[in-house]
C-alpha cells in the first residue's frame, strides 16, 4: 500500500516473492489432490476454497511492477478474488454447457493456468505499466 522506495528488488526481497510464486504454482494441484479425500472431509474445504477464490487471480496479478503508483499490494489483494471467481465461473459454465463437467475437468484447467501464470509477470494493468501524461479532468 505504500510506494516501494527501491524499484529494483534485491536478492533478499526476491526470495519471498519466489516462494509465494511457488506456492501459487502448486496451489491448484493441492486443491485437486484434496478432492481425493473422502466426501465432506473437512480438510477438503480450505485448499479448494482458497484456490478457487484466490489462486488464479493472485497468480495472474503477482508480481506487479513496482512503480510510482501506490496501492499496488492492496490492488493485487483486492482484485485477486474477483478475478479468480470470474475465471472459475466461466470455466464451470463452459463445462456444463459442453455437458462434460467433473471436478477434475473444473480444477485442472484452473490449476494449469495458475501454474503458468505464477511463472510469468503480473498482468499489465494500464496505470502500472507507465503513464501517458498527467491525469486530471472534471
Amino acid at each position: 500500500m505504500t510506494v516501494n522506495p527501491n524499484p529494483n528488488p534485491t536478492a533478499a526481497s526476491r526470495a519471498p516473492r519466489a516462494g509465494a510464486r511457488a506456492v501459487l504454482a502448486v496451489s491448484g494441484w493441492l486443491a485437486l489432490a484434496a478432492t481425493l479425500l473422502p466426501n465432506a472431509f473437512p480438510l477438503r474445504w480450505p485448499p479448494v476454497l482458497l484456490f478457487v477464490c484466490l489462486g488464479p487471480g493472485l497468480a495472474l496479478l503477482h508480481p506487479r511492477p513496482r512503480g510510482p503508483r501506490p496501492g499496488t499490494r492492496l490492488e493485487t489483494f483486492a482484485l485477486a478474488a474477483p478475478l479468480s471467481l470470474s475465471l472459475a465461473a466461466l470455466t464451470s459454465t463452459g463445462l456444463f454447457l459442453a455437458g462434460s463437467f467433473s471436478v477434475a475437468a473444473f480444477l485442472v484447467p484452473l490449476a494449469a493456468l495458475t501454474t503458468v501464470a505464477a511463472l510469468l509477470p503480473g498482468l499489465p494493468l494500464p496505470a502500472a505499466t507507465g503513464t501517458a501524461q498527467s491525469g486530471g479532468g472534471r
Binding site: 486443491a31 465432506a40 459454465t93 456444463f96
Partner: peptide, 22 residues
C-alpha cells in the same frame, strides 16, 4: 444466466458435500 450456479455446483462436488446447504 448460470455462472453463479455452475460455480456452486463445482464447489459442491469439490467439497464433497450433498448440496450448497452445507
Amino acid at each position: 444466466w448460470p455462472g453463479f450456479f455452475t460455480l456452486n455446483a463445482a464447489l459442491v462436488r469439490a467439497f464433497g458435500v450433498e448440496s450448497t446447504a452445507a
